[in-house]
Design a protein around this nucleic acid. Sequence first.
DNA 1: CTGTTAGCGCGTTCAG
DNA 2: CTGAACGCGCTAACAG
Lengths: 351, 351
Amino acid sequence: VSVTTVNTLYPRLPTISDVARVAGVSTMTVSRTLNNHPSVRAQTRDDVMRAVDILGYRRNENARSLRPGHQTGLIGVGITNIANPYYAEFVLGVEDIASQHGRRVILATTAGDLGREEQVVSDFLGRQVEGLILVPSGDTASHVRPGRLRGVPLVFASRTVDGVATDSVVVDDEGGAYSGARHLLEAGHTAIGYLGAPDTSFTGARRLRGFLRALSDVGIVPESHLIRRGLRTVEEAKTATLDLLSTSRPTALFCSNNRNVVGALKALTARSRTGGYDDSALEIVSFDDFELSDLIPYRATIINHEARRLGQASAQMLFQRILSPDSGQPARTVSMPTWLEPRGTSLGVAP
Amino acid sequence: VSVTTVNTLYPRLPTISDVARVAGVSTMTVSRTLNNHPSVRAQTRDDVMRAVDILGYRRNENARSLRPGHQTGLIGVGITNIANPYYAEFVLGVEDIASQHGRRVILATTAGDLGREEQVVSDFLGRQVEGLILVPSGDTASHVRPGRLRGVPLVFASRTVDGVATDSVVVDDEGGAYSGARHLLEAGHTAIGYLGAPDTSFTGARRLRGFLRALSDVGIVPESHLIRRGLRTVEEAKTATLDLLSTSRPTALFCSNNRNVVGALKALTARSRTGGYDDSALEIVSFDDFELSDLIPYRATIINHEARRLGQASAQMLFQRILSPDSGQPARTVSMPTWLEPRGTSLGVAP
DNA sequence: CTGTTAGCGCGTTCAG
DNA sequence: CTGAACGCGCTAACAG
């Protein structure tokens, strides 16, 4: 009785020796068959495969990876928030390359919290991942110092961390923001509202720097009430935009990311519904593309870059380390280019 | 020399016995310390923890889960496409519940391909996942018959599969589509274009059924050229919409999902740019919400439901099975409710 | 309070 | 061509 009960509670999966027993051979013969070892008689092989089929046997990858030299085939990916379509695309890029190398992605979200990130890294290492790709949460990261990782390669994506010398793939934030701002200036705008992420955010700081440099290059000192930073969510961006428009009359808006432009557009929509505000001349520049950016009802330009490519590039850097761990190359930082794309009504009438 | 070289190539992680040696105790003492066993002297505990710190030791979870009774703490999640924000949100919902139960999500995409799904399931089982959540690719799924899973609980999300009796969480597709179509009919529309997924898609078939039932209830037989099915991507939906509008003059469009409505909107934008088509009276109903649906420049209504809740509900069902595997309850199917939400210019002017 | 023994599932090494 | 023994890292059970 007790055996049956235990089996129901913990349904023990069939092991290699169960297969061996059913097939009437030794475990080694099963192992060789499963690994396509040439020296197995065809008849024996058939017996084994039949037993495998009967039992529904599957090799235990965890036990397998316990053996020296064997790897787990796992790549740990830690992102801040999968609900942001940008990181969803990013993960897809990583998965793309990982599956090409026969690896599986294990995913965790850190919610931008340093403590959770530390747990996640620790968990990943405990699961013997072959490599880590991380969108770091903050600019301190002692848990991720190369020494603590014991040789497991790490790639930072989207941001880097001061004092941690490791491979990273980032977007050309400053250059992109510079050219986006430049675009507005050349169109004659001088009163440009800025909606930005917190300065503590790596990309936020870099994009702001590019924006300000473009203004300073043409001798414009931005008025402080036009510069809104510290915006983390769509909702915050919406509120900030409403507040900005209630006190100022910018002729253009520069949105430092995906979330901010969505919030800004929601604010503009809400505001135009209340009437009394003619924003038809407003022009928008935004970092990051998003779905339906075609439909922006303003002159608009996107500073575009592809999350999926960022993911692919990160994974490719990681696999360079994984596949030749002895190369001893110094840490590299790759900057992914951006480009401007007209959107919204700035497209004008197509032919 | 050779030892050093080998260590560089295969950086062997410190094991429990390395820690034991450095701390001058046995491996059991280390193990007990790490598991907060009460019967370890404070002094010994400190010695162990110091050794752990020096070596940067982390417990090997794979070796640990090898022991009988121990679990891997892994939940396998297989979705068709993470680039669809809907499934990204879905995964977040699963991860939310999973992390509450101290489990980690291992992710794979099947791209809607049955062969890949089979590999994914096999891989997950080989990694000893404690449970599986799958957005199934097709309506055949022999690889996923309960017998093949050897007692590992499985939950289907978003769709079910004929002939596989397992827990599932689906959206009330037919009821939602019915009420959405009803909404259009009550507004006086009779020529309604339908943009739908392939009939082989579970949700596609159900939504079409609800739509057609609403029409038939008021005695309308839809003209066949108004019904477009088999649309898998935004691009296909866009093309189909352009084709539809070039031959017909529907007063309303019913989009059966997220991808289709985006495609339809892109088509309408492109078409209005070419001029000569007044669609200002057009009304849209769409299944699935999407970002910036606020900005739809038409009267619009969303048949809404929350992907994150779907993910949470799926994970909750899964954990019921994981936590009491002996319950022997029959498979249940939970239907998540939908609701109508006005969007776009149908909002009118806010107070 | 601490150490020894044994075994989880698998595959390499060495004998048949 | 096939099998027996051993060890990967960890911990329950049983000494001491």
